[in-house]
Computed example of a mutant assay.
Amino acid sequence: MPTEQRHYRLPTLLVVDDTADNLMLMTELLKDRYRVKVANSGEKAIRLLQGDPLPDLILLDVMMPGLSGHQVAEQLKREPRTRDIPIIFLTAMAGTEDEIHGLELGAVDYITKPIRPALVLARVETQLKLKAAADFLRDHNEYLEQEVQRRTREVMAIQDVTIHAMASLAETRDNETGNHIRRTQHYVKVLAEQLREHPRFRHFLSDETIELLFKSAPLHDIGKIGIPDSVLLKPGRLTEDEFAIMKTHTTLGRNAIQHAEDQLGMPVGFLSLAKEIAYSHQEKWDGSGYPQGLAAEAIPISARLMAVADVYDALISRRVYKAGMPHEQAVEIIRQGRGTHFDPDICDAFVACTEQFQAIAECFADSHQD
């Protein structure tokens, strides 16, 4: 193997000492086993360490004019780029307190002069092996972390695709809804962020929960897949019997999501919220909603948020049986439903961010509403 190639593969040591004889001695001792670089001052060592490649280990004198070895070590340990390079102090300062101080600065070993060559070689070899093991573990951990992040992104992407695919099934049954599921998804997130610090909701609305709500919201009407076309697509007012059939979409949706969760064999956060939303978003604060007639705090928070988002969008959206309502009129109707249809505090949050609702409606407008 050519000498240059052999040296390229050898560990690199940086020897820092202000005495030329010491640098020559250490070079002669180490050159057959390692690639050796030298610096005759702390300042030069710092400059060398700003380039690449970095040495695998530093043998560092303490008493030098200008920057001392202690000062060099302190600088290197402050910098993320150099803090993991092992430092062995090589010095005539042989006191116990001196050795303790050197180790406290982050040195991995402390060798006193005059040196014993066999001891220096043994300690350098030991520290290089320890560094190789630490580098392997660090690289392995970084790889594992990157792999976890990659797989997490894949899982999140699969969740998103699955949710939108399921939601789109309901949308194909009722194509008049257009971008309804997208708008309501963003409305819910806006409301949740508005209420994040509210005393009644802060225990529930963590960053993670808000993200899960955003994922879950598109499934709120998934149960409409099970509603007959004669009811779902009727252009006029529903009869009492037809409305009774329409109301079953909440139970159908909850059951469909529960079935999906059962197939997985484990609870899934966003599906749990999706079940709540699908089943309870038609409940009303005063207990007059469906399917269970829940009232006030008995209604899940997720469903209370969706109730406001769903009604607002239904009011402003054009359907075959009605024209879309102006934003201001829809806001007033929701305001009037405070404490009867809607949770009072969620209603207040809606009033505080109506401009954001309007912007979302315009951003995701259906083609016939552009």
Rank of each mutant, 00 (worst) to 15 (best):
E4I: 10
Q5L: 15
L13T: 03
V16D: 09
N22H: 13
L23Y: 11
E28Y: 02
L29K: 05
L30C: 07
R35I: 00
R35T: 12
V36W: 02
A39I: 05
N40Q: 13
G42E: 10
G42W: 04
R47L: 12
Q50K: 13
G51N: 07
P53M: 02
P55G: 06
L57K: 09
I58C: 12
I58E: 05
L59H: 02
L59I: 04
V62M: 06
M64L: 10
M64Y: 07
G66R: 06
R78K: 15
E79F: 01
L90M: 12
E97Y: 00
E97K: 07
G102H: 06
G102A: 07
L103Y: 04
V108G: 02
I111S: 10
I115T: 15
T126R: 11
K131C: 01
L137M: 04
L144S: 01
E145G: 15
R150P: 02
R153F: 05
A157H: 11
V161M: 10
I163P: 08
H164A: 04
E171Y: 00
D174A: 15
N179F: 09
H180W: 05
R183H: 01
Q194V: 01
L195N: 08
R196W: 03
P199V: 01
P199Q: 05
F201W: 02
R202N: 11
H203G: 12
F204R: 08
L213E: 03
S216A: 15
D221R: 14
K224T: 14
I225N: 11
I227N: 07
V231Y: 09
L233A: 09
K234Y: 13
K234C: 05
K234T: 02
R237A: 08
D241L: 04
E242V: 01
E242F: 01
H249D: 11
H249M: 03
R254H: 11
R254Y: 09
I257H: 08
Q258G: 08
D262Q: 13
Q263T: 09
Q263I: 08
P267H: 05
V268A: 10
S272H: 06
L273C: 03
I277N: 03
W285K: 07
D286N: 15
D286V: 10
P291L: 08
E297W: 02
A298V: 00
P300E: 05
L305R: 08
M306N: 10
M306A: 11
V308Y: 05
A309W: 02
D310C: 13
A314T: 14
I316L: 07
I316W: 01
R319V: 00
V320G: 06
Y321D: 14
Y321T: 06
A323T: 11
I334G: 10
R335L: 00
G337P: 04
R338S: 14
D345V: 01
C347L: 03
A352Q: 15
T354M: 02
E355W: 00
E355D: 14
Q358P: 00
A361W: 03
E362K: 15
F364E: 03
A365S: 13
H368S: 09
Q369F: 01
